[in-house]
Amino acid sequence: MAARTKRYALVIDSKKCINCKACVVACRAEYNVPLTYSRPWIDEETRGTWPKLMAVFQPEQCHHCAHPACVRVCPTGASYQREDGIVVVNESDCVGCRYCMIACPYDARFFREDKGVVEKCDFCVKRLARGQPPACVETCPSKVRIFGDLNDPKSKLAELIAGRQYRLKKPEAGTGPQIYYLM
């Protein structure tokens, strides 16, 4: 069987999200991110008028775009896209110019003042290499996040994308985001 290139993506079933922030805590524990920042976060929104109110929680993070704007503008090539679609930052090449943060339509990157470099979600590449799913996916108690390979038609993720309606965030930015929010 020929080697197939992987394309990692994330499906977020945001209706199941209960805003427990376990994903944020798991990520912070995994990467030692300072308390003022986080790689994933949850957008809280209140819709409707009183008394008919509804709280909407939308987990957010790097969308690992198909044509990442952050990679295009990086002056040193520190931000790059791996073959499996994951956008990562090479910390030793990053000079901390923060152009990528300005270019990101999702504001998914943050600047570590202590290290002087820009950090972002990398789909836990170290855990993936060990065969484990990303920390936020593993820890999510209400199974909001489904992680998988887009190019594998048998994966749960491909099944969900084929069978359910989904929404992409800010597709008009032209970056081809790869986080699918189920309706």
């Binding site: 990086c74 002056p75 090539g77 901390g96 923060r98 152009y99 470099v117």
Partner: peptide, 23 residues
């Protein structure tokens, strides 16, 4: 001095990326 690590500014001159206006 606006760079996060100003002493790494020489890395800007080790690369030429025509897609990046900053480069």
């Amino acid at each position: 001095f606006d760079l996060g690590r100003w002493y790494h500014f020489y890395k800007l001159f080790l690369h030429l990326r025509l897609a990046s206006p900053m480069s």
